[in-house]
């Protein structure tokens, strides 16, 4: 039995409150901002009492940005769709390529396996700008610049190492004898992979997929350089709110709320997989 003194509980409560405030305040503030006009946002002192307005959201959804200098066309919904498509496709391809590769790196010891795995990881070390310039030139020559295919390809630099290294760890944690037992009971290598290894590493694969989705979603610099307006994701599209007549804080906030909504929802949904992933240790007794 664990007993806690009232003082301890109080201190713990305070600590938790502080942590929650620290992490949740920006999100709450952004949500509040998204329902205000620029005037109410910028008044001094700031206040949480205001007349909520939906005009920021309508502006984003209709694509008409009203500024003092006139009406501006923005394609925020198109950007949102681009983000969704680019991230989903990148993660899907990353999983198709990365999960079997992770299994190979975890289970089969072949010449140079560590070196190859490390090289893949090293893609994460290099600053993206290092590869962007040569990549831009190649892509223009190959006709891949400003295409979804080209962007998804480049996104593999972000997604693939992440998936590979996370999932590899999960595969390594599965006792190899479970797979051996399945194989000796009359199953081939391929069905052992599908029926034993994949389900057991499922939580890890979900976690890796989720994390790489968020990384892909948040990517800015690749898309900034390699995509023009119609292929841009929200991260780049948000630049449109910096207009000649000032920064549209209300719309920026609404844009942020809309753009974090999918990853936020995904994270909430996948939480249980992450927890399951942690309790996989129980397999080992």
């Amino acid at each position: 039995m664990e007993t806690t003194s009232p003082v301890e509980r109080l201190l713990r409560g305070i600590a938790i409150t502080l942590v929650c405030l620290f992490f949740m305040f920006p999100i709450v503030w952004i949500v509040l901002m998204s329902f205000q006009t620029n005037e109410t946002i910028l008044r001094v002192p700031p206040s949480v009492i205001f007349a909520p307005t939906l005009e920021n959201y309508t502006a984003l959804i209709t694509g008409k940005l009203e500024t003092q200098a006139g009406t501006l066309d923005i394609d925020f919904m198109g950007n949102l769709w681009n983000s969704l498509f680019l991230s989903t496709a990148s993660v899907a391809i990353g999983l198709i390529l990365g999960v079997p590769a992770a299994y190979a790196f975890a289970r089969l010891k072949f010449r140079g396996s560590e070196d190859i795995a490390f090289t893949l990881l090293s893609f994460r070390f290099a600053p993206p700008l290092l590869v962007l310039l040569p990549l831009t030139i190649y892509f223009q020559q190959l006709g891949l610049a400003n295409t979804y295919g080209g962007l998804i390809w480049v996104y593999q630099l972000i997604v693939l190492p992440l998936i590979l290294w996370i999932v590899r760890g999960y595969f390594e944690d599965i006792p190899a004898d479970i797979e051996y037992a399945y194989r000796i009971a009359g199953h081939d290598f391929w069905s052992t992979f599908r029926r034993i290894a994949l389900p057991l590493a499922g939580p890890g694969i979900a976690a890796a997929g989720l994390l790489s989705f968020i990384f892909a979603w948040n990517n800015f610099v690749f898309a900034l350089v390699l995509a023009s307006a119609d292929k841009q994701p929200v991260t780049v599209g948000a630049l449109a709110f910096v207009t000649a007549s000032g920064i549209q804080y209300g719309q920026v906030a609404a844009g942020i709320v809309l753009s974090i909504a999918p990853t936020f929802a995904l994270a909430l949904y996948a939480q249980r997989y992450l927890v399951e992933g942690l309790s996989l240790g129980a397999v080992k007794g």
């Binding site: 006792p175 004898d177 479970i178 051996y180 194989r183 000796i184 009971a185 199953h187 397999v283």
Partner: peptide, 16 residues
Amino acid sequence: PVRRNVAMAFEGYSLY
């Protein structure tokens, strides 16, 4: 292994 028709008991954790 699938075509050898052998059965094996393992020392460690090998249950599905």
